[in-house]
């Protein structure tokens, strides 16, 4: 007799089937989740003059939404974008290096994604130089200005709790905002990107300019964010570091089921299957 047929009325069979179904569902969900969008093809970049080259890149990749002269455009239901005059090189570097721009799919918010292939440090620099030339604005910070090793994590932690965690959560795991917007996880953000985000206030994020939160204080915050990110979880798995929701889930799904399995084993009676 087929062994599956024989065991399908085993007391544990239904749990096994349930488990199988759940894991299948999870697998399908993971497969169907949208992956990183691979945008258009590479484009050659001129070496002569950063601004000129940047203008060329801008015309090719950005102008359709932001207008030919970065003055912004608005088309209801179509490609719209804000004016980029005065946003500064820091904004360009943040948006393009994190893959948020060019904004491929319409949605409430531009998600972080893998940048298209034409994006590399050189082209980002050219594009940034062009936008900077239009009306100034915050510039890209030097590597030293964002070096976590040079910041004071304890001071940064206090500032982080005062200014950032209400949206990004206490370790920067992110959180929900209104109308489908969200504060992204800080996990993949580089120190430079964190600095640029504070200085420029991308999308819904407010601006923390250098005169109210000084560059040193920003570096302290970066030191805290990066430090906590690399800090091991001394108590075991961090459970996503989002607090009691996952803890409750683990208590029910992990703890309680283990104990119920133990109870079933303790009280189980030996059943002898009668093969006929």
């Amino acid at each position: 007799m087929n062994s599956i047929t024989a065991r399908r009325r085993h007391p544990l069979a239904r749990y096994a089937v349930l488990l199988l179904a759940l894991s299948l569902l999870g697998g399908v969900y993971a497969l169907l989740m949208p992956g990183g969008d691979r945008a258009d093809a590479a484009i050659a970049s001129g070496k002569a003059d950063d601004v000129a080259a940047g203008k060329e890149l801008f015309a090719a990749h950005c102008a359709s939404c932001h207008g030919l002269n970065a003055e912004g455009s608005y088309a209801p239901g179509g490609a719209s974008g804000p004016s980029l005059i005065g946003v500064g090189a820091a904004a360009v570097d943040f948006q393009v290096s994190s893959g948020r721009m060019p904004f491929a799919n319409p949605g409430p918010q531009a998600p972080r994604k893998r940048p298209p292939e034409w994006v590399n440090p050189e082209t980002v620099k050219q594009l940034a130089a062009y936008v900077q030339s239009l009306g100034g604005g915050p510039t890209k910070p030097s590597l030293e200005a964002v070096d976590p090793a040079k910041g004071d994590p304890a001071k940064g932690g206090e500032l982080f709790r005062a200014n950032c965690i209400q949206c990004h959560n206490f370790v920067g795991a992110g959180g929900a905002l209104t109308y489908g917007k969200y504060a992204p996880s800080l996990e993949p953000a580089t120190p430079t990107q964190i600095y640029e985000a504070m200085a420029t206030g991308p999308q819904a994020m407010p601006v923390f300019n250098d005169s109210t939160i000084t560059p040193e204080q920003k570096r302290d915050m970066i030191a805290y964010i990066v430090g906590v990110r690399h800090e091991p979880n001394p108590g075991g798995n961090g459970l996503g570091r989002i607090g009691p929701v996952t803890e409750g889930l683990v208590a029910w799904v992990g703890g309680l089921s283990l104990l119920i399995i133990a109870a079933i084993w303790i009280t189980a009676k030996k059943r002898q299957v009668n093969h006929d």
């Binding site: 500032l159 709790r161 601006v207 109210t212």
Partner: peptide, 22 residues
């Protein structure tokens, strides 16, 4: 005073629209 830095705020410094402070 800015929370965390304990510095007073000069109105002229808090000049970026879209800025927020606790």
């Amino acid at each position: 005073m800015v929370e965390g830095t304990r510095q007073p705020i000069r109105a002229a410094d808090f000049n970026s629209p879209g800025g927020i402070l606790s």
